[in-house]
Design a protein around this nucleic acid. Structure first.
Lengths: 341, 341
DNA sequence: AGCCGCGATCGAAACGATTCGACACCACGG
DNA sequence: CCGTGGTGTCGAATCGTTTCGATCGCGGCT
C-alpha cells in the first residue's frame, strides 16, 4: 500500500495526496476529505525510508550509550527511557548505539550512513573521539555532561560543583566540623570525568570556605566497595560526623557500614548527597539529597537537539541544571557538639 | 558524497560500484581495488535511507520497552543494552519504542511506516494488543516472556516454574519444612504476567511434592514494601525458616526485615531466588540464586528474530532458558531441626 | 471581450541506492 | 572462420516519497 495506490483510489495524483497530508500546499476541502477517507480505510502510512530519502532527513535521533559490559547505573538507564519518551513528543524516533571498542561500527553506520538527524552523547569524557567525529560530520549533537575546559558544542549537565557545595554548607549549617566526600571511582576522576571532578572541586571549595576538616575519597560503583570504603574511613577518621556522596551505587554499603560501626543516622551521623531519587528513597532513613532530575535532563537534551536540527545555524547552547535539595531524614546536627576546641 | 560520485571518480558505472561493495556479482580485481581506494579516500558509506528503500529492508529492529513512567527494573534495563549489543553483532540497528498510552503513535510509526524489519517485545501480557497488531502487519517479532496459554509466535523466556521449583527442592533438601514465596506485585499476578504466575505454580507444585508448609505472597517492587511484607510474614508465621523470591527489588527490604527480626542469614534463616546477578551479589550475605541470564536472553531473542527476518516462512520457535543455581551463601539447614512432629 | 491572478491539481524530476537484462570482449573448440 | 560460453561492465528500471514548475478553470477587473 503506497501513495500511488491511495492516489488511484481517490482519483487524484500522487502529489495531491502528499500535499493533503503535509499541508504544504492548499488542497480543496472536498478532495482532502476524500483522500483522508481512503487513507483511513486502508490504514496507509508513508514509508519511512522513502520519505527519509526524499526529504533528506530521517526524523530519527541517535543515542550513544555506554557499553553494555560496564553496567549501566540505574540513573543512566532511566535516562534512556526518558530520552525516548521526550523524543516521542517531538515525533522523533531513537536509535541506540553502544559505544566503545567493538561497537564502533554501529556508531559509524549511524553517522556516515546518515541514519540519524542528530545525536545525544551520554557520558562524554575529555577529548571524546565520538564528539570529534560528530563535529567533523556536521551532524548536530548534544552531550550529556561536559568537561572542565571550554567545551565546544551543546551540552546539558548538572551543576555538581554547586550542588555538592550546597550539601557541604547544609552540613556546616547544622554544626558539622569534620566531613567526608565519597566520590565516584578513582579511574573516573583520573580520566577527567566531569561530575567526579566538579564534585571534588565543589566539596573542597565549600569546605575551605567553612573551615571544615575534610577527607575526600573515591569509591568503586559497588555496594560492597561502599561498605569497605566507609568502614575504613570511619576507622581512620573517627571524628567525622557527616558524609557527602554522589556515588549512588555505594549507598547500600555505606548504610551497612554505618550501622555496623554503631552509628545511627541521622542522630549520630549525617549523610547527604546528589543521587537519583530512587536511591535516596531506598536509603534508610530516606536520604536528604539533591535528586538528579533525570527526566528534566532528557527533556532538555532532546529539546536542545531538536532546536539545533531545525535551525542548524544557531550557536551552541548549554544548559546547567541545579535541582533543589530535598530534605528527607538523613541529616541532623552532630552529636554533643564540642564547645570550643 | 554518493555512489554516483564514487563511480565518476573511479571511472566506472554506479552499478559496478554497488557490485564491488556487495559482492553479488563478480568484479575484476583491478576495478574493485580502484573503487575501494576511492571509497577509502573520500570516506563514503551508502546512504541508509536510499539503501533501505531499494532493498525493501531497513536493517533495523524495533525494541518495545515498558513505559518510562513505570520504573524499569534494572534487569529490564540491562536487557536493553544487551539487545543493542547483540543486534550490533548481526549488523542491525535498534530503535526504541516506548509502549503504553500516549506512546502508541511511536509504535504505529514504527510498524506501519515500515521503519523496522522486526520487533522485540518486552513484557508481554495476555491478550497483548501490540502482539496482535504485529501479527496483523506481518512483521516478524519475538516476545520476551510468554503467557500461560498456547502462545502463538516466537518467544524467549525463563523457566520460572522449573527454577522456583528447584529453589523449593533446594530448601527442602536442606531440611526446611515451612517456607514462603515472595512474588511480584499482586496486580502483575492478576493481569496474567507470566513470570509471576508460573513462579507461583512452580512453588505450589514443588512444595506439595515435598509436603512443605507454605505461604505465598505478593509484594510491590520496592525495598520498603519488601521490608513490610517480610515483617508481616515473619510475625504471622514464625515457624517459616526460608524464603524463595523472584522479586529482586524487594531484596534490600527483605534483608532489613530479617535483620530487624533478629534472624541471621543463613544460620537461622535461608533466602533463595531467581534474580539478576547484580542483586544476588548485593544481598548480604550473597544470595544463592538462579541468576537471570539477561544477556543470554537478549542474544537468543535477537538471534531468533534475525532468523525469522531472513527466513520468513519458518514456523514459530520458542526458547526456554533454565540457568543453573549459583550456590552462594544465603542458604543452610534450618536451625535446631525439630525431630519428629 | 480579453486579461490577469489565484486556487487546485497534475506531471515529472529529484533523492541514492539495488538489481535485472543486455552487451562487449575474450578464449576456446569445432 | 564462426558459433559458444563465461566474465566483467553498463544502462535503465525500480523502490515510495517530496517538491518544483506548469497547467487548467474560474471569477473579477478594466
Amino acid at each position: 500500500m503506497n501513495i500511488g495506490e491511495i492516489a488511484r483510489r481517490a482519483g487524484v495524483s500522487r502529489s495531491t495526496v502528499s500535499y493533503a497530508l503535509s499541508g504544504k500546499r492548499a488542497v480543496s476541502e472536498v478532495t482532502r476529505r476524500r483522500i483522508l477517507e481512503v487513507i483511513d480505510d486502508v490504514g496507509y502510512r508513508p514509508n519511512a525510508s522513502a520519505r527519509a530519502l526524499a526529504e533528506g532527513r530521517t526524523r530519527t535521533i541517535g543515542l550513544v550509550i555506554p557499553p553494555a559490559g560496564r553496567r549501566l547505573s540505574p540513573i543512566q538507564l532511566g535516562f534512556v527511557a526518558d530520552v525516548v519518551a521526550a523524543a516521542g513528543r517531538h515525533e522523533l524516533d531513537v536509535v541506540l548505539s553502544p559505544s566503545g571498542g567493538e561497537h564502533d561500527r554501529s556508531f559509524e553506520r549511524m553517522v556516515s550512513g546518515r541514519r540519524v538527524d542528530g545525536v545525544i552523547l551520554m557520558e562524554v569524557r575529555v577529548q571524546d573521539a565520538r564528539a570529534a567525529r560528530l563535529e567533523r560530520s556536521g551532524l548536530p549533537f548534544v552531550a550529556i555532561g561536559h568537561t572542565a575546559g571550554a567545551a565546544p558544542g551543546c551540552w546539558v549537565d548538572l551543576d555538581y560543583e554547586g550542588l555538592v557545595a550546597r550539601c557541604v554548607h547544609h552540613l556546616a549549617d547544622l554544626g558539622h566540623q569534620a566531613i567526608a566526600l565519597v566520590n565516584r571511582p578513582q579511574a573516573f576522576l583520573d580520566s577527567g570525568y566531569g561530575p567526579a571532578r566538579r564534585a571534588l572541586d565543589g566539596f573542597n571549595a565549600a569546605a575551605a570556605a567553612r573551615s571544615l576538616t575534610v577527607r575526600a575519597l573515591c569509591c568503586p560503583d559497588e555496594a560492597t566497595a561502599g561498605e569497605a570504603c566507609t568502614r575504613d574511613l570511619l576507622a581512620a577518621h573517627p571524628r567525622i560526623t557527616g558524609i557527602v556522596t554522589i556515588n549512588e551505587a555505594a549507598l547500600p554499603g555505606l548504610e551497612r557500614a554505618l550501622r555496623r560501626s554503631g552509628r545511627t543516622v541521622p542522630r549520630q551521623f549525617s549523610v547527604i548527597g546528589v543521587v537519583g531519587r530512587h536511591w535516596a528513597e531506598q536509603f534508610h532513613p530516606p536520604l536528604t539529597a539533591a535528586d538528579v532530575p533525570i527526566s528534566d535532563l532528557a527533556e532538555r537534551a532532546v529539546g536542545l537537539l531538536a532546536e539545533r536540527m531545525t535551525h542548524p545555524g544557531t550557536p551552541a547552547r548549554h544548559v546547567m541544571l541545579t535541582p533543589p535539595l530535598s530534605l528527607r531524614a538523613s541529616t541532623a546536627p552532630p552529636p554533643r557538639p564540642r564547645t570550643g576546641s
